Simulated assay, not measured.
Amino acid sequence: MTQFPIFDGHNDTLLRLHMSDNAPSFFTESSEGHIDLPRAEMSGFGGGFFAVYTPNKNYEVKPEDYMTDSGYDVPLPPPIQQDEALAFTNALASRLFRLEAASTGRLKVVRTADELTRCLDKGIMAAIFHIEGAEAIDPDLDALHVLYQAGLRSLGIVWSRPNVFGEGVPFRYPSTPDTGAGLTEAGKRLVRECNQLGIMIDTTHLNEKGFWDVANITDAPLVATHSNAHALSPIARNLTDIQLAAIAESNGVAGINYAVNMLREDGGLGTDISLDEIVRHVAYIAEKFGVDHVVLGSDFDGTTVPDSLKDVTGLPKLLDRLKAHGFHNDELQKITHGNWVRVLEDTWK
């Protein structure tokens, strides 16, 4: 394995594989999607949070249809039912476990920080079972305990649409993340139960009030797996300096998202941008809040990334740009995986 295996905060590869009947096997190198095992292995991709996300049926919007000269506000889909989300969650989680079984030891679903460290040391792709949007969980939290026993170790309370636990931020530019009410009482109970079990809470997609509700309740480091610096790209999905300071104070991390509209100062969808746009967000957090509090959170297979990156095979070029910016080896070790290991050691039980 490379000196700097990249452990990544978020991908939607399971959903891509599930939704495409003709998708190539995860174990076959192809040009489709952003991640497959051969491309990952040759690129130093050490693994990451494999998201389980339930999309709305028959609901699709094109962000470009909402672009104006002054910005955009993309409408969110309606809430979905718990039984629908739980069935879909089971299907995607099953796909992850089947990939593990079929990988002949090249991929492992990790449940402890020690397992993660061993995989990174041995060049085995480490996958964390993560749910993005807690719709599959009932307000009594019975499903949470079952999913934990199945391997769930990370949970995003919302994907931007609302649910019984809280509200998310819209895809709106320009906008602050202060866009609505915070967590419900059920959401606050969910945070406490995740703390008790040792499930990492992901504040990504939460609005600002929800973020502060988590910060005021949790006894674990604050984490945003795939969110950028609002000061550099003022889209509602990004984190303000006050939020980033709270993450740093808690000894948590923010994972830099490669989505072009979350990198660009103008919030645009154009993909012809340099890898230095990613480096800019990494450096901003590292220099202002400390290198211990920034990681990478690609959103591979779930967003549009710069042409200069293309897919997982662009990661060595990104490392080169980080080195050229002036990050030293010990700092690269932290950004690529060390900070993730520390946070999970502090969070998981």
Rank of each mutant, 00 (worst) to 15 (best):
295 V>W: 10
272 D>A: 13
118 R>K: 13
208 E>A: 13
184 T>S: 15
204 T>H: 13
73 D>R: 05
49 F>L: 15
53 Y>C: 08
184 T>V: 07
47 G>T: 01
170 P>N: 12
210 G>R: 12
3 Q>H: 07
26 F>R: 01
276 D>F: 03
260 V>D: 07
58 N>T: 09
149 Q>A: 12
271 T>S: 05
346 D>R: 15
330 D>E: 14
72 Y>E: 09
230 H>R: 14
110 V>Q: 02
58 N>V: 05
242 I>W: 06
269 L>H: 14
57 K>V: 09
124 I>S: 01
333 Q>T: 15
164 V>E: 10
17 L>D: 11
313 T>I: 11
333 Q>V: 08
222 L>R: 10
275 L>Y: 06
12 D>A: 13
51 A>S: 15
117 T>I: 15
146 V>E: 12
217 I>P: 05
49 F>S: 15
6 I>G: 06
66 Y>I: 04
319 L>Q: 05
225 T>S: 09
20 S>Q: 14
309 L>R: 02
142 D>N: 15
174 P>H: 10
119 C>E: 03
55 P>C: 07
57 K>L: 15
18 H>Y: 10
327 F>D: 09
170 P>W: 03
12 D>V: 14
166 G>Y: 13
341 V>K: 02
325 H>I: 03
151 G>H: 06
167 E>N: 14
75 P>K: 11
260 V>P: 05
227 S>D: 10
36 D>M: 02
48 G>A: 02
88 F>C: 05
172 R>Y: 01
344 L>I: 02
138 D>A: 08
197 L>C: 06
11 N>P: 04
243 Q>D: 00
168 G>W: 02
216 N>Q: 04
187 G>P: 09
254 A>T: 04
43 S>Q: 02
310 K>H: 11
140 D>G: 08
247 I>D: 10
346 D>W: 13
129 F>N: 09
43 S>H: 01
268 G>S: 02
138 D>Q: 09
46 G>V: 03
125 M>T: 04
128 I>F: 12
105 G>M: 10
157 I>S: 14
222 L>F: 11
155 L>F: 11
34 H>E: 09
183 L>H: 03
129 F>S: 04
161 R>W: 01
76 L>S: 15
127 A>D: 08
42 M>S: 11
151 G>Y: 02
319 L>A: 08
180 G>Y: 12
269 L>E: 14
91 A>V: 07
344 L>S: 02
126 A>I: 06
165 F>S: 03
173 Y>L: 13
111 R>K: 02
155 L>D: 09
227 S>P: 09
199 I>A: 00
144 L>C: 06
128 I>A: 04
292 D>T: 12
71 G>H: 15
161 R>F: 14
133 G>I: 12
284 Y>D: 00
336 T>Q: 03
177 P>R: 07
71 G>T: 05
36 D>T: 01
307 D>Q: 05
128 I>V: 10
313 T>N: 04
136 A>N: 08
131 I>N: 10
148 Y>K: 08
232 L>S: 00
6 I>T: 03
85 A>T: 07
241 D>C: 04
158 V>F: 14
298 S>C: 05
